[in-house]
Design a protein around this nucleic acid. Structure first.
Length: 781
DNA sequence: AGCACGCCGACT
DNA sequence: GTCGGCGTGCTC
């Protein structure tokens, strides 16, 4: 959001710049389209089309006479066009002015796929802004706002699943299946022409019965166009009575409806943020408007959805990566037509068109999953703020551990801050204590004091959660004779020892796998020793230490089988002693009411890291994990094992809390002129040859200062760190390097980067080098 | 990104 | 004599 502050709150956007320069010699940076309001002179109609190709231009085409009956097209509709030897589906953006390309090079579009716009003007503008802000090709940005099926050119029909009986269906076949019989009769009632699944479910049919009938060949499912109708919102459940803080937050948000306002809802875990969301949403929904709710990737659980469903009786759609193409299209259409009043989704849902958008909520706004890491590197939180600004609706950012960027915007008066400090039911906040690992005997990686604390809890039939962010058995395989270590042949990393499903070595960075060597390849010793602690090994150790206790391990290896996570979840909800043990997966979203002790085993790495954001991330994680402890009536305790108990940041965090920590961290950032006090961009390069990545970056960075715009500046306005090899220089066989660019002035940074990056992408030296630009980079690896 | 064209090695 | 390797160049 770094840049967003300025971006949102001043009108000086890159878009604005592009508009100013569009008629000059410089090619329009991101192919912004001439506004199609001037009626063109007679002659052929030339239109501009955005295509899903990694090129920064939009493309001009002619409209054939045969399609003039459909003219004028709706900006945002799809067109089929010839492109090279291919045919592509693109988005019609508007009429082109005649300048630029020679008319003889123009091709003619093949077809127009839609009568109406799929992406209203406000969405197209937002997508243009995102393309320009993140320096990413406009066609690819636009295509990420469309579901796959529409991208492929499949017809836009409002599809819904309908059910009907098959022609040969006989009632007699179901004599001994009363439930299916009920569903059969229901279908019989609505047999012509079939009934939508959603209606059948409301009438008491179940999905399972329908499927069983289908398997028996008695019923069939088909897709059919539906008419969209909006159902009035009804409250399905009375709102809880808010406490004073919640009421103040709700009232304040209500005051700001119908205009843009960024609101940071800074509330402890368990202080009732969701209730504030729900009550703030109510007037928006009652006014017939839509609400967009963004949640972190792991946060979109059935429980989350249930919470909304049980409060509001209106159409709610979930948008996440696990949807099938058809389901995604249906959800998208429900949002795009305005029928779905609530859209809950992960990062990419921020680009869902919603014609009656009235409120945006971003839950756990600090979560890293809101920043896309590969290809189009946008931050959904920042896009959401921009969207709220453009569409004049409030944006609520909720978090117990707000990111420093958001807190900085509060400081500057650009975000309104609302605090929730009381926990529901007066639940006591967990105490956090450090365990000094120096001079402390350990068993299976656990300090004596920690083992004693665990025993105490188990005796009382309470549960313990142990957090260890390292999966596998052991992170290193070491030869004690000659200090050889098993390393990945393709990465600068150790191989992790795994014992499940069978003993093997595994690289967590490139997926390389191999057998364990029988003897040390260096000195032939046969005493190779797994060293260090992973979750699988800790599980073994815990079974030895607590033989009569259920140990529930939660990590990617233990939960990959279907249903295993559900089983663990169920067991954790029984009021009986148990130890939950796992990686980050455990930290987020899930509520374990019987956990009263949380242990964090390896926190030191987070504070001693080249990434300047690492302490912030670690603190957020600690607070989040701490929030898992003692949410019920029983007070919780958090124990953190560390070799560095004197670390000042850690001390401030546990003694004075996250707010004080953030303040200190912020002061350090300010002193170092790091984000959010300067804006940043990270340039990455990857090649299979060592040195070449660095050389390329070096070359490219000299061009940055060689630009005429940069030369005119007296003092270099940019500070460049690097180029340096990336923290893990070699990964999956490629050598990675990067450089960080800082600038105080966001507009200047984007102005310089924009022209320069276009130039870099066209460089002949670029062949064989994968390079990318990451605006407001969040992770330095 | 695709998908051409283009110019050199091991096959019938 | 061809099939195919991926270098490089273009796409309105």
């Amino acid at each position: 959001m770094t840049s967003l502050g300025q971006q949102v709150f001043t009108q000086n956007t890159a878009e604005g710049n592009a508009q100013k320069t569009k008629n000059q010699d410089q090619p329009d940076l991101l192919g912004h389209v001439a506004v199609p309001d001037e009626t063109p002179a007679k002659g052929p109609i030339i239109i501009q089309v955005a295509l899903p190709v990694p090129l920064f231009d939009v493309f001009s085409y002619l409209v054939p006479d045969a399609l003039l009956a459909q003219w004028p097209f709706a900006p945002g509709c799809r067109v089929c066009v010839p492109f090279g030897k291919r045919e592509l589906v693109g988005i019609y953006l508007g009429q082109a002015t005649n300048d630029g390309i020679q008319p003889d090079k123009l091709k003619t579009i093949h077809t127009v796929l839609d009568d109406e716009s799929l992406l209203p003007e406000s969405m197209l503008k937002l997508l243009h802004w995102a393309a320009s802000y993140y320096h990413y090709p406009i066609g690819e940005v636009i295509s990420c706002a469309l579901p796959t099926l529409l991208r492929q050119g499949r017809p836009y029909n409002l599809l819904a699943q309908y059910w009907r009986l098959t022609a040969t269906a006989e009632r007699e076949a179901l004599k001994r299946a009363p439930k299916q019989l009920e569903t059969f009769d229901l279908l019989k009632l609505h047999d012509e022409p079939g009934a939508p699944e959603s209606a059948l479910l409301l009438m008491g049919a179940s999905k399972k019965q329908l499927q069983l009938l289908q398997e028996k060949g008695l019923a069939e499912c088909f897709l059919q166009k539906t008419e969209h109708q909006t159902h009035p919102v009804k409250l399905a459940e009375l709102p809880l009575i808010p406490n004073d803080e919640q009421q103040l937050a709700i009232d304040t948000i209500k005051q700001h409806l119908a205009s843009f306002k960024g609101i940071l809802l800074d509330g402890l875990t368990g202080s009732g943020k969701t209730e504030v969301y729900l009550q703030a949403m109510q007037p928006v929904l009652e006014a017939g408007q839509q609400v967009l709710v963004l949640v972190p990737e792991i946060g979109l659980t059935p429980q989350t959805l249930d919470r909304f469903r049980s409060r509001f009786q209106c159409e709610i759609v979930a948008m996440h990566s696990n949807l099938t193409d058809v389901a995604r299209l249906q959800a998208w259409q429900a949002a795009q037509t305005g029928r779905a009043q609530i859209v809950i989704g992960t990062r990419s849902a921020v680009f869902t068109p919603m014609p009656k958008l009235g409120l945006i909520i971003i839950d756990e706004e600090h979560d890293v999953s809101f920043k896309q890491q590969d290809t189009f590197r946008y931050h959904a939180r920042d896009v959401a703020l921009c969207r709220g600004h453009r569409e004049s609706c409030p944006v609520i950012l909720g978090s117990a551990t707000p990111c420093l960027e958001s807190l900085h915007l509060v400081e500057e008066g650009k975000l309104l801050s609302l605090k929730l400090t009381q926990r529901a039911g007066n639940a006591a906040l967990a105490k956090i204590q450090l365990i000094d690992l120096k001079n402390q005997p350990r068993e299976h990686g656990l300090a004596r004091d920690l083992i004693d604390a665990i025993k105490q809890r188990l005796k009382k039939q309470e549960q313990v959660l142990i957090f260890l962010n390292r999966r596998g058995y052991a992170p290193v395989l070491l030869c004690p004779q000659c200090a050889w270590q098993a390393d990945c042949p393709r990465c600068d990393a150790h191989l992790t020892v795994h014992r499940q499903p069978s003993e093997h070595l595994h690289c967590h960075h490139c997926n390389y796998q191999s057998r364990l060597p029988a003897a040390c390849p260096s000195c032939q010793s046969t005493t190779l020793t797994p060293t260090g602690m992973g979750t699988a090994r800790l599980e073994e150790g815990l079974k030895e230490l607590f033989p009569d206790t259920d140990i529930l391990r939660v990590d990617r290896d233990s939960t990959s089988r279907v249903g295993s996570w559900e089983r663990i979840y169920e067991r954790a909800h029984q009021e009986k002693g148990a130890i939950l043990l796992g990686t980050q997966m455990l930290a987020k979203g899930h509520h374990f009411p019987h956990v009263t002790l949380v242990a964090i085993l390896d926190v030191d790495g987070g504070f001693l890291n080249v990434d300047f954001r690492a302490p912030e991330r670690t603190a957020q994680l600690i607070m989040q994990v701490a929030g898992r402890a003692g949410r019920g009536q029983k007070a919780g305790l958090v124990l953190i094992q560390t070799f560095k108990p004197e670390n000042p940041l850690l001390q401030i965090l546990i003694q004075q809390g996250y707010a004080a920590f953030a303040k200190t961290c912020m002061a350090e950032r300010k002193a170092m002129l790091l984000p959010p006090y300067r804006y940043c961009a990270l340039i990455r390069a990857e090649t299979p040859q060592a040195e070449k990545s660095l050389q390329f970056l070096q070359h490219v960075l000299t061009l940055l200062y060689a630009q005429p715009e940069a030369k005119q500046l007296e003092k270099p306005p940019l500070e460049i760190w690097g180029p340096v090899p990336a923290p893990m220089e070699r990964r999956a066989g490629v050598f990675r390097a990067h450089a960080l660019i800082f600038c105080k002035d966001r507009r200047l940074l984007h102005h310089l980067l924009g022209h320069w990056w276009l130039q870099v992408c066209k460089l002949p030296e670029r062949r064989g080098v994968r390079c990318s630009i990451d605006i407001d980079a969040q992770e330095m690896s």
